[in-house]
Design a protein around this nucleic acid. Structure first.
Lengths: 226, 226
DNA sequence: TCAAAGTGGAGGCTGCTTCTCAACTTGCGG
DNA sequence: CCGCAAGTTGAGAAGCAGCCTCCACTTTGA
């Protein structure tokens, strides 16, 4: 039996180092993808990205067999940043500020990058890398909400699933207004937060979605944003 | 000089009565359009509508030169209903209930008809008939909000434009959840309403959109819903 | 009865995206 | 400095979806 290759040993494909020009192009493509996804959302075409990167489409397809591979490469890191900021939020002493800060940093991320909501909230984009990154997010959110609830700083009928749904809602405002007045979402963010406090006690008239219904809901709610 | 035709006199094209079969088909097309727009939103194609109506595409195009003519024919009446329910809301004694009832009936309309938000909130669909119908809505909404403000039943920094924006937000929840649990929007409706009450006093951190920016915002925010 | 009105739906057109391929260029180990 | 594997390119194939036209045919009603 022959010696195993590094690839076999690690079970992750070795990246035999790319030729220098190829690596340079890869970086150009990643940079272009980052910019374009941020500016115009997930609906940009790989042709657009090739143009912006100053390379041919063929080069893009050689490096990233499909759009999701590129998404994977680009968003794993962005999501890790979100996870980090969620952890930072969770580390705050004040359970209410913890929730507020988490939601706000999520919204800021959406404001800076049109595509991030689609990737984070649905399961329709990217491959395993993105999935794994997202898997770390959900329990932190749950902790943040549960802690707020235990501390009595949110209305008692608030559910975990209300947080992503609120993100979705505010995201629609963001999309509508980013070209006119990119900060207006903060008005509705404030309204939503005030509506979540325990002082706002009109009982919520309907059961919340289960957390496991959220991906499906987001798939529908963001279908249009690609 | 020949006698003027009725058309010239009225400046509205006379509808010389259609042949019986043609009129029957027209009704079939309208019914199909109503159903399909309600079920699937404005993005249904005229081909789809022809199928549902059981007529050929050609027949649809003969009767309605473009999608917007059909939208005009279908939504003028729906919008008139909205105007009526807004007036009914305005007629209530309690200024707060007035606002709540208006918004709720608007949401109900959205729940029953996927297309109505796109038609009512943007200026991108339909022709003059729809425009004229909508023109009657805006001043009523303004009155409802102003009265609520004068009575001190909403936070003082609430703007008129916050109402359509809230509709947009809640609409995104509705779209996301209608197939899972069509009433969940009421949770977020409640949260939003609680956040609009004067007890919720975190000051709104950003100026509201002008009412005349609303159509543009809605055009962006609903672009995806067609 | 028959001209005018109306019909259907295959198919042309346009516009968009994804992805391929064959001819060409470049980097680098020997 | 050479040769070739690796890389590049971009036109265009292929596929799809929607919009709308056209004309041989049917139906209506004066």
């Amino acid at each position: 039996m022959p010696l195993e290759t590094a690839e076999d040993q690690a079970n992750t494909p070795v990246e035999k180092p790319l030729r220098r020009d190829a690596e340079r192009n890869r970086q150009l493509i990643l940079a272009a993808g980052r910019e374009l996804f941020a500016e115009r959302g997930l609906s940009v075409t790989l042709d657009d990205i090739a143009d912006r990167a100053g390379v041919g489409v063929g080069t893009v397809y050689r490096r990233f067999p499909d759009r999701d591979s590129l998404v994977d490469a680009l968003f794993t890191e962005r999501i890790a940043e979100l996870v980090a900021s969620a952890q930072a939020a969770l580390a705050l002493d004040d359970p209410w500020q913890s929730l507020v800060q988490f939601m706000r940093s999520h919204m800021r991320a959406q404001q800076e990058d049109r595509a991030i909501a689609s990737v984070v909230l649905t399961n329709s984009h990217g491959h395993e890398a993105v999935l794994r990154a997202k898997a770390r997010l959900q329990p932190i959110v749950a902790q943040i909400v549960e802690r707020a609830q235990a501390a009595g700083v949110v209305r008692p009928d608030l559910a975990i699933s209300d947080v992503p749904m609120t993100m979705l809602m505010l995201g629609s405002v963001l999309d509508a207004t980013r070209d006119l007045q990119p900060d207006v979402w903060e008005r509705y963010f404030t309204i939503a937060l005030d509506g979540m406090r325990p002082t706002a006690t009109t009982p919520l008239p309907c059961a919340a979605l289960d957390t496991d219904q959220i991906p499906e809901a987001m798939r529908c709610g963001l279908a249009n944003r690609r």
